[in-house]
Amino acid sequence: MSTPITEASNSITEEIDVASPSEIVTLLEKCDQEIFDGYKDYKSIFSEEMIKTIDDVSEHVIEMLQEDGSGLVVFSGCGTSGRLGFMVARTFNELQRERKRPEIFRYLIAGGDKALFTSQEAPEDDPHAGIEALKKISEGKDRVLYIGITCGLSAPFVAGQLEYCMDNSKFVPVLLGFNPEHLARNIKIENWDKTFLQGNYNLSPDPITGSSRMKCGTATKLLLETICLTGLLDMYHSEENMYVKYPVFVPWLLKFPVDTFYAANCFRFPCACKKSKFVYCLFIESLIAYTAPIFSTHFRGEIHMVFIFSFKLSLSSLRSGGNIYYIGDDSLAIMGLIDASECPPTYGATLDDVRGFVANGYKTLQNVEGDLSHLASYLHYIMSETI
């Protein structure tokens, strides 16, 4: 295969365009499961190497937390990657706020906050804009953990920031992406004297070819949350107390068949990291958090039937010229906004086809640029102050 994995088609969903709603749900579940099972001969997300990497990055999160305000953790990306970076930064700043500790998590997204809701392609291809954004957000900080997110390892906005980080000692640069090294290629970037070398941890192809918002998005969220959660828990809680909690979940997890949760992967690899048992337990917790909804949604039972029924209603609504609205509060509503923002560039939907509404609007969102309703009518509508 000469095509990068993130741009390849998935053999599981080759006929998804002619599948029934029930069959589509089953196909998507099989694709989701590849995140945890591994893909072909590539290593699982639960491999010793991956757990070691998570541990190393979480140590740097702890380092930034210990800087007591002079440290910073920056998540940067384009499109979905930047939106997930925003959501993770928002979540962990809230946890810091609850502890009355400095809110050290920041996000950068190509095109600014408007890109949280709609595609902004031109800034994504500008490495200089990425560098300037990083300079501004990191000004006055002594140490910065920079995590650049680009699923296909092809975003010039992130590439420029990475080069800047490597030339400045106060930065700890980390790159998160999902293509194998042997498929690396050099891409000429306009108005820049560098190329972008693709290659990193690999993941199986997305259900819809090239739609990295799906499986790659899930893996990005899982990894970022695990990195930050590990850092915060290790910073603020003793390991002894955490060990008391997690063994409650592990026996519950193992009640299910291996082919359902693929829990065996978690136990086959000895963890070569500083706090291996601690990280290992957090991975189990993350596995539960991400696969339990898959189990209840994609398999049998009443929840499965409700999901299929909702699927059919959504299909009927769009076919008859109607809309799909996500309505909610806090982080779940924000996930709806992220999904709605991806439908135009990914599926050719209009801005009206799928929309999101958040209770209390921009006050809930907590984006850096605040109220954007003056920029476009659909931004006001999306972030309506009342539901």
Rank of each mutant, 00 (worst) to 15 (best):
P127K: 01
W252K: 08
D17F: 10
I303Y: 11
K274D: 06
C271I: 13
Y290M: 09
P293L: 10
V18N: 09
F75G: 01
S20L: 11
L27E: 05
Y362F: 14
L95A: 06
Y326M: 05
L229W: 02
I189W: 01
G112M: 08
S316H: 13
K52H: 06
C343Q: 13
A289T: 07
L84V: 09
A8H: 07
S138W: 02
E121L: 08
L287T: 08
S58T: 12
T350F: 06
D126Y: 03
K188H: 04
S11V: 11
F283G: 04
R319F: 10
L223V: 15
H128T: 14
E132Y: 03
M305C: 08
V158Q: 05
S22V: 15
S154H: 06
T3A: 09
S20C: 09
D206F: 06
I284N: 00
Y39C: 04
V74S: 03
N200T: 12
I51M: 07
L233I: 14
G140Q: 01
D125L: 08
M214C: 09
K312E: 15
C281E: 10
G152F: 09
N10C: 14
Y381C: 05
Y347L: 15
S276G: 14
G112K: 07
A89W: 04
M64P: 05
F283M: 12
I147G: 01
M383V: 08
P345L: 07
L315K: 14
T350E: 03
I16N: 02
K100T: 00
D142R: 13
V61Q: 01
D37R: 15
S47G: 01
V25R: 15
L337R: 05
R185M: 01
P205K: 03
K215C: 08
